[in-house]
Computed example of a mutant assay.
Amino acid sequence: MEYPVMFQIERIYYPVLATVGVPVNLVTILILSRGRCGLSKCISRYLMGMAAADLLVVFTDPILRWINVIYFPDSFLDITPVCSLINFLGSATVMVSVWLTIAFTFDRFVAICCEKLKTAYCTERTAAVVLGTVSALGCLESVPWYFVNEPVYVIDNIPWYCATKSSFRTSPAWAAFDMFHLILTPFIPFFLILLLNVLTVRRILAASRVRRGLRGRSNGENHRDPEMENRKKSIILLFSISGTFILLWVTRVVFYIYVRITNTRYYYSYSDPVYITEHTAKMLQLLSSCTNTCIYVLTQSKFREELKNAVKYPLNLIIKLVKS
């Protein structure tokens, strides 16, 4: 049997994504929890929360959903209550991951643009409260997705597979919930990140001009400015994370807008551009759950050093065991 080209790509893509995504997020959580990366406790809390959410995204979507569909059809994961639970977890983990990115972006916006609020808001305790609140609300909002499906077959009193209920497409209540969910993820996060970054950039440029002018008059133009260097590192980290999020989600956002405008509901074939675009957008969106570790490696020298130590530790341990 010859599979469609998109399906063949997914057969390779999702196992690779899972193989990379699980260890890199686990390593990120481990390194950040040690507190040796030169980051504040507030930032470390957000980054650990984002890594944990991304780890759950990789586990629920590529592994439990896609790898199961592709390689293990008719497994216990296809029992209706189980696949309904996977649908709920997939929605909840993505919701939490996206809104933790928003929370981190907003925290850095406050730290840079709101001097009076910075001391009270940008703390480890506030970060913990925000992480818990976002996680709870994300799970609560996604609960209805558990009840969207109904069984395709019932064999020996066991319901199998998940098919979307017909009422989901005809009920005004379900239509309102679906629209509410789309607004929460991805429309509001996408445009909120753009807005916060624009405001942050404007503030940075204005502050930099003033600071360079003051230091130029007092100390000369070529003197080091530790405050500006620290701010530059924070900005690079922020823009790398939020910029990557925007790039990897933009296809999905545009696709949703197109589908809503044209009222597209069905594919005509596996080569249909709508089918290809939707699945490509999904793959790019899930890729965002694996990129933050690469960003830390590229932008944070102390994180790179800790990562090298983490890689060297088991190798050194093996060498010692061999020698002994």
Rank of each mutant, 00 (worst) to 15 (best):
L284H: 05
L315I: 15
I188W: 15
L298M: 10
E221Q: 13
T185R: 10
V152S: 09
S289Q: 08
T119K: 08
R108M: 02
T200N: 00
Y267H: 12
S301F: 03
K323S: 15
V130Q: 00
P73H: 01
R65Q: 12
I246R: 00
L307S: 10
T28F: 08
P73A: 01
Q285N: 13
L85W: 12
G90W: 11
E227R: 05
F106T: 02
C113P: 02
L287W: 07
V69T: 15
L117Q: 10
P314K: 05
C122W: 00
E227Y: 04
L321H: 13
G216Y: 01
I158A: 06
I183L: 11
A176S: 07
T185L: 14
A206V: 05
R34L: 09
N25I: 03
Y267N: 13
R125S: 03
I158T: 14
T123S: 10
R304I: 09
P23N: 06
S242W: 02
V5S: 10
A206F: 02
Q300K: 04
M228F: 06
C113R: 02
C113M: 01
P226F: 01
C114N: 06
F88V: 04
Y153S: 10
S97H: 12
G35T: 09
T280L: 12
S142A: 14
I29N: 07
T60E: 04
N25W: 02
F88T: 03
P186R: 07
R34M: 06
G21N: 07
S240C: 11
I318L: 11
S269R: 04
K232D: 06
I295R: 02
V210P: 00
W174C: 04
T291P: 03
T123P: 03
N157W: 13
V16I: 13
S288G: 12
M283H: 03
S171C: 03
R108W: 00
Q285P: 05
V22T: 06
S166D: 13
P15L: 03
R260S: 10
I183M: 06
S44C: 02
R202Y: 01
T277K: 07
S33V: 04
V274W: 11
Y71F: 15
V22I: 15
N316C: 09
E229G: 05
I70V: 05
Y14W: 13
N222E: 10
T170K: 06
T291G: 07
V27T: 09
T264D: 07
E141M: 14
L77Y: 06
P273G: 12
Q8F: 04
F191Y: 12
V24C: 09
T28C: 12
Y13I: 07
L55K: 02
F168G: 02
G220M: 05
G213M: 03
L39T: 01
K118A: 00
M228H: 06
M6E: 10
N197T: 01
K302G: 00
E227G: 01
K165R: 08
L196N: 01
Q8V: 10
T101F: 08
